[in-house]
Design a protein around this nucleic acid. Structure first.
Lengths: 233, 233
DNA sequence: ACCTGAACACCGTTCAAGT
DNA sequence: ACCTGAACACCGTTCAAGT
């Protein structure tokens, strides 16, 4: 049961296999057929080979995902402009989030494995430069970038399974269910905040970046002398 | 090839199947054998049945994970005390993070599916109450809780694949790789911040909560009139 | 009603054998 | 060197058939 020649004619010609071709095809599948369709086997079929062949160019699924993210990050506008640093910072963070929002599986990737290509480096560099413009000293800015990127990434990543899940109405907040079931007697604060807990969207994201920046401006890093216990647990 | 009677004697007696027994067994596997070992089939074996039987009590893997998290959250000390609200808030957030830190798979769950049981509700209620004590008005507090919980959860979740991954030395920061490869010429800010980007640990987490709280105290929610575009993308 | 063996419909990854 | 069919070692979930 060989592949019919028709499909050969539909897809112009069998491209030579390469890392870039694989990443490109993977991104195409992701945006056209969704995250579930992106499997090594499925990807191989799209490239007219067997799954095993992919492993010549890509170590494993995780690395493939990381490369896809790197590729996508290339389209980010790091926008040096005349605008004040703070506005540029929020804008950059919002557009980074939107980018991940469109491909939430890659947001997960960004959260769990470190992207490390040049495009990601440029993003970090740009963020550090903006915080430096805001006269936040290096050490604080370093931790700040992590904080800002985490907010962006986690927000987009949360969106992932939300989307796939059955109830698309409960899409905005991380607290929807807890609220619905809360009784005003046992959980008065939840009951009172019910409406507010779920409101938001783009505005909430932008607000949260303002919170982070304001907090960053007013919270110095702890003194060096106190640095001892480095583990959380 | 039936199970040998020896194993029957080792595990005291076949407990009756129930939701609680399943969740309990799942948590045992998780802490004794790690996240990879926790599969429906493996869990069924531990309970002396077939995987299909689990589906009588649990809808799917996701729901199982959520129940496990809920169970774990029961051990959280919500600690009403004489201490000022701000200290109690940070303490609660840190202990919530530590709890997830020990079981990072469940941190992922907390990030991607909404926990919704009573223990989670109690946590949200406690956080809202603390912010109310800090005289943060309801709407802002609602968004604030989301922000605080997300920092805690994402930090623990990031820890997940870090742990499983090959290089346990690079465990602290989300930026380690980007730093290593950055040239001082093209990325001067990264090069300058190199050391600082990776330092941290428990101290960094606590600092980030301070940032969040300070930011929260100084950043009102946007005016109602401006609420229009609710989507990010 | 509760339980289960067996099957369905997949996975990622490896490897010996080919070109 | 590059490529691949086939196999390995699994998955989660469903369902018909049993008790």
């Amino acid at each position: 049961m060989k592949r019919a020649p028709i499909s050969r004619r539909e897809r112009p010609a069998k491209k030579a296999l390469s890392r870039e071709a694989i990443v490109e095809a993977a991104l195409a599948i992701l945006s056209e057929e969704g995250a579930d369709a992106l499997t090594m086997r499925r990807l191989a079929t799209a490239l007219d080979t067997g799954a095993a062949s992919l492993y010549v160019y890509v170590r494993n699924t995780e690395e493939l995902h990381a490369s896809m993210l790197e590729e996508l990050l290339g389209s980010l506008d790091l926008g040096r402009g005349r605008v004040p640093w703070r506005e540029r910072l929020v804008e950059l963070l919002v557009s980074y989030t939107s980018l991940l929002y469109r491909q939430p599986v890659l947001a997960r990737t960004a959260l769990f494995t470190w992207p490390s290509g040049p495009n990601y480096q440029n993003l970090v560099e740009a963020l550090l430069a903006l915080l430096a413009e805001g006269e936040i000293e290096t050490g604080r800015a370093a931790w700040g970038v992590d904080l800002l990127l985490q907010r962006a990434t986690a927000t987009a990543a949360e969106h992932a399974t939300r989307n796939e899940s059955a109830d698309p109405a409960a899409d905005d907040s991380a607290l929807a269910d807890a609220i619905r079931d809360a009784s005003p007697n046992t959980h008065p604060h939840i009951a009172a905040a019910a409406g507010e807990l779920m409101a938001g969207g783009a505005e909430r994201l932008a607000w949260s970046f303002e919170v982070l920046i304001n907090g960053l401006l007013s919270t110095p890093r702890p003194a060096r002398s106190e640095r001892r216990n480095r583990r959380v647990s």
